Computed example of a mutant assay.
Amino acid sequence: MIDQVQSSWRDYGAVDLPVPLRAALEAFVEHGYHGTSVRDIAARAGLSVPGLYHHYPSKQSLLQGLLELTMGDLLRRSEQAIIEAGDDPLAQFDAVVESLLRFHMYRREQAFVGSTEMRSLDPDYRPRYIGHRVRQQRMVDEVVLAGVASGVFETVDPKGAARAVATMCVGVSTWYRADGELGPTELIERNLDYARAIVGYRRRD
């Protein structure tokens, strides 16, 4: 069962973004990066185009600013979840999976833009963004490798299994709905079972 004691990495309130980034997020979700104009973002933000440029000098800077805040939040939550889980590999695994699932449910739109608009990133920024994603994946890799080393997980392909688990969690952002059939707790518990199966966890009573 999920630990019901709430930690800050589990705490999600309303999305707290600067007004221009909130407007950009709404527009990118609705129309995609290339289908969105700066004028549309400015109008959503209640700013003139020159006023928007005072804060963000280009549409690309809006996308990059949004992704930096998104990845910073995701990485902080994942790191905190693993630290709070202690030294047990299974507890660490459950924590990082739960953290990823929660993020991709409660920050679904930000995660969706982060996944779909990599193609729209300027070449100078792309390596930095990829580095954030690699850092997140390595957290999952290291937890799974530790579980295999301790005999908790039986997968013969730890990194492949870790990638599959992360991909499953990220995919939640494409279909999760707050009014859907499964509530958050049930969805997390079911997907934790799936994730444990991927890494070859066998309960030892």
Rank of each mutant, 00 (worst) to 15 (best):
M1Q: 01
V5D: 04
Q6Y: 04
S7E: 07
R10T: 13
D11R: 12
D11M: 13
G13W: 11
A14S: 13
A14N: 09
V19K: 12
L25H: 07
F28I: 13
H31M: 06
H34K: 07
D40P: 00
D40F: 03
I41S: 04
A43N: 10
R44G: 08
G46R: 08
G46Y: 10
P50V: 12
P50N: 10
H54K: 11
S61C: 05
Q64N: 14
L67M: 14
E68L: 15
R76W: 14
Q80D: 12
A81N: 09
A81G: 05
G86V: 10
D87K: 01
D88T: 00
L90Y: 00
Q92D: 06
D94R: 00
A95S: 06
V96E: 02
V97S: 04
S99L: 03
L100N: 14
L100V: 01
R102N: 05
R107G: 09
R108T: 14
R108C: 11
R108H: 13
F112D: 05
E117V: 12
D122F: 06
D122P: 03
R128K: 14
I130M: 13
G131R: 04
G131C: 02
H132D: 01
H132K: 06
H132M: 04
R133E: 07
V134H: 05
Q136W: 04
M139E: 02
D141W: 05
E142Q: 10
G147T: 06
G147R: 01
V148P: 00
A149H: 08
A149F: 04
S150T: 15
G151W: 01
G151A: 07
F153S: 01
F153P: 00
E154L: 01
D157N: 15
G160M: 08
A162Y: 12
A166V: 06
C169N: 04
V170P: 01
T174I: 12
T174F: 15
G180C: 03
G180W: 05
L182Y: 12
G183Y: 00
E186N: 02
N191C: 02
D193I: 14
D193C: 07
Y194R: 09
I198T: 15
Y201I: 01
D205V: 15
